[in-house]
Design a protein around this nucleic acid. Structure first.
Length: 744
DNA sequence: CCTACTACGCTTTTT
DNA sequence: GCGTAGTAGG
């Protein structure tokens, strides 16, 4: 049984207002997840609502998983029948069941950004568009925003009259959709748009889901786009019990179609709507909140609110300006060490920046200092070449309906099947109106293919063999079979480069992912695995009890909190970005950047450090910048700021930057940092040492320092502290989970 | 058909 | 500065 007396007055009201439309404006750190979970419990326990009729919808898998866990804890019986998912997986589930009612096969495939670009290339070619002038990406952006606003190709064309460029775009849009349809595929935006289309076209289906989801809750509502708004409006259309939670000040995804009007005009869409503001913050000190409040107050189009806390003023905000980005990273590294020595842990700290490119400097410095870190974001794991290759094999084995996947691997490894042969097969497939793979299966019958057919047949045989194996092998075992039979990993091993090693590591990680999928799923299937992977942005192996500094962009930081935060690279031109400053509607875009700054500041619980550099390398050229305008929006009296005196770059460091070890440093950067060892598993010192592959006195290999001898292994608070005497670098202490030492 | 070199692109990006 | 994609030449 849940208790509600720990809630404050506004939270309590939000929890107990169960009927009708409800807008909860939840400031940063005001306990909105708590409200949502308590509200769910309240609906079931106090209002007697069937859990089956409740839906909680979020944007990220991570947010959904977190909500699921907290709801499970609180609700107990029946909690598994509550629908807690992301927008996209909701739509996939609906479409997998009813997509045939809008002319799709329910086994449609989902195209990611990479696939979209591939399709767009085809489209541009067939429409004879010069991609040197009109970029594929531009068309994809245009199409994506059209879909975000539920504009179909016909409507788009209508709005394009008299504008040649837009007419051309309309043509591309139409053709792009035709190719997707032909491939029985949908892109991410289609998932939402087609579901709306389905609801509008088939009232029976709509009614079915309206009856199912009588109580709907939407998290991060400020990030919904027009299509998503329409989706939930339709779902809530019958019972009208719609509760949305958001913070207009944290809307940072306008560039992806988020429509801030959804939250600003909620009361117009739902005139009976009740509005509750949560302004008490339970996260940060008063100084941090004051800084955030002052910055965000510079925005005009927002709902008035001010965060307050019962906490003390706390530390002042630290501000430092450095000469170079290197000194900035150096300062942050040293400061983190200082915090840890003072009794903190690494996981208390996070470094936040505007662009992913900024992470490199910190990574290099952290490796040198032996600071364990975890990089969040960057290149999406599932978008990596080697992963997409293996997945293309799996897709082809599962059902070869995805032409793109088949074409990707038909000549990988090299089977002597070139562009000419592939084109002939494709042409034949188009003529016969069959899939590319089906055409390849009867390669002998394709006119003009000649000797090419003899090269295609073994490939088809291989897939057919794998297909029969797939019936009794698990996914992980199937992947192992694929890499063994194709020699994929063997080829990489032969390359013997750090890059190739990193790719092999990634493939191993995919296998682990498959293993954990099989373990965690009741009836694991190949299709099921592919489905899960298609809707996951990145593998998130946050190990409980692990200890590392987190590095990520401000965008990724939304929804998180850390005791000690560094906002790095606070420079005009970087943050706010140059693009924003020179933009045509600079005013509006500046407000979005400012909201991003607000998000950054409000991540900090106790300690906030803002840093900037006068000089920084951006895309190979040195750039000089002033301190970000956002810094001057923070009142001076809240800051404890100095401009660092021109300390020059230490010589040793300059040497290291161009040292022969630069390559190995690169290798570390390329592969994902090793998942830190969870401590709870080991209890005694004996098992500690047994769990490592080396012991005291062993010779070990370190990726940067080379070979050395292990002097001691000590079970430190959270990890094993290993002392190694390196042949060339002397004695170093390092954490076992981070140093990746290998016995030699 | 395969390889090696050049050229281009580049803010953020929950799916 | 870096990584991928496209193309010229073998």
């Amino acid at each position: 049984m849940a208790t509600y007396d720990t809630l404050n007055a506004e939270q309590y009201e939000a929890v107990t207002t169960t009927e009708g439309a409800l807008l909860i404006i939840a400031g940063a750190g005001s306990g909105k997840t708590r409200v949502l979970t308590h509200r769910t419990a309240y609906l079931i326990e106090e209002m007697g609502i069937n859990p089956y009729n409740i839906m909680a919808i979020t944007f990220t898998n991570k947010a959904a998983a977190e909500m699921r866990e907290r709801i499970d804890q609180m609700v107990g019986f029946g909690s598994e029948s509550i629908w807690v998912t992301t927008f996209h997986s909701t739509c996939v589930r609906i479409l997998r069941r009813f997509a045939d009612r809008i002319g799709f096969d329910t086994s449609f495939t989902i195209y990611d950004a990479d696939d979209q670009k591939q399709v767009m290339k085809e489209v541009c070619k067939s429409l004879e568009i010069d991609t040197k002038i009109y970029k594929e990406k531009m068309f994809l952006n245009v199409i994506s925003s059209a879909k975000d606003t539920l504009t179909d190709p016909t409507e788009f064309a209508l709005s394009a009259t008299g504008d040649y460029a837009r007419q051309r775009q309309a043509q591309v849009y139409r053709e792009y959709q035709a190719v997707l349809k032909k491939n029985n595929a949908m892109d991410f935006d289609d998932l939402i748009m087609k579901t709306v289309e389905l609801f509008k076209a088939d009232l029976e289906v709509l009614d079915y889901y309206q009856e199912r989801f009588k109580y709907i809750m939407v998290d991060e509502y400020q990030d919904t786009n027009t299509a998503q708004f329409e989706l939930i409006r339709l779902l809530a259309g019958k019972y009208g019990n719609l509760c949305v939670v958001g913070d207009d000040d944290q809307s940072i995804y306008k560039f992806r179609g988020a429509n801030i009007k959804n939250i600003l005009n909620f009361e117009q869409y739902f005139p009976q709507a009740k509005v509750i503001k949560l302004e008490q913050n339970y996260r940060s000190t008063q100084n941090i909140l004051d800084a955030a409040n002052h910055v965000i107050a510079h925005n005009i189009g927002r709902k008035q609110k001010a965060l307050w806390t019962e906490q003390d003023a706390g530390e002042k905000i630290h501000f430092k300006q450095f000469d170079t980005a290197y000194e900035e990273a150096d300062y942050v590294a040293v400061d983190i060490e200082k915090q840890v020595r003072a009794g903190g842990s690494y996981s208390d700290s996070a470094v936040l920046y505007r662009t992913n490119a900024q992470s490199r400097m910190f990574e290099e410095r952290f490796i040198q200092e032996n600071i364990p870190y975890k990089l969040v974001g960057g290149v999406n794991f599932y978008a990596r070449k080697e992963i997409k290759d293996i997945l293309a094999y799996l897709k082809t084995i599962d059902n070869a309906k995805d032409d793109l996947a088949v074409k990707r691997i038909i000549n990988l490894p090299k089977r002597g099947i070139g562009a000419a042969s592939i084109n002939k097969v494709q042409t034949f497939a188009n003529e016969q109106e069959m899939s590319f793979y089906d055409a390849a299966r009867i390669a002998e019958e394709i006119p003009g293919l000649g000797r090419g057919a003899a090269k295609i047949t073994p490939f088809v045989t291989f897939i057919q063999t794998m297909r029969s194996k797939a019936k009794f092998l698990g996914v992980a075992e199937l992947i192992r079979n694929i890499i063994a039979d194709t020699g994929y990993v063997r080829e990489l091993e032969a390359e013997n480069t750090p890059e190739a090693d990193a790719r092999i590591e990634n493939i191993d990680e995919l296998i682990s992912k498959a293993v954990s999928y099989e373990e965690s799923t009741e009836a694991p299937t190949l299709s099921g695995f592919l489905e899960e992977v298609a809707l996951v942005a990145d593998i998130d192996d946050v190990v409980e009890g692990s200890d590392y500094v987190v590095l990520m962009t401000l965008h990724s930081a939304k929804g998180l909190e850390f005791p000690n935060v560094y906002l790095a690279g606070m420079e005009d031109g970087l943050f706010p970005s140059y693009m924003t400053i020179i933009s045509d509607n600079s005013e509006e875009e500046m407000e979005e950047e400012r909201r991003l700054c607000y998000v950054g500041i409000t991540r900090a619980m106790k300690r906030l450090t803002i840093t900037s550099a006068k000089m920084r390398m951006v895309r190979g050229e040195t750039r000089f910048s002033k301190v970000s305008r956002f810094v001057s929006e923070i009142p001076m009296h809240l800051m404890n700021g100095t401009v660092a005196t021109g300390k020059s770059i230490p010589k040793q460091v300059q040497e290291q930057k161009t040292s022969p070890y630069a390559n190995t440093a690169k290798q570390i950067l390329r592969s994902k940092p090793a998942a830190p060892v969870p401590i709870k598993v080991f209890s005694t010192e004996a098992t500690n040492q047994m769990s490592l592959s080396y012991h005291e006195g062993d010779r070990v290999q370190h990726i940067k320092f080379g070979e050395g001898t292990v002097l001691s292994i000590v079970a430190g608070g959270r990890d094993f502290e290993v002392t190694v005497d390196f042949d060339r670098f002397g004695t170093k202490k390092m954490f076992a989970s981070f140093a990746k030492l290998k016995k030699v």
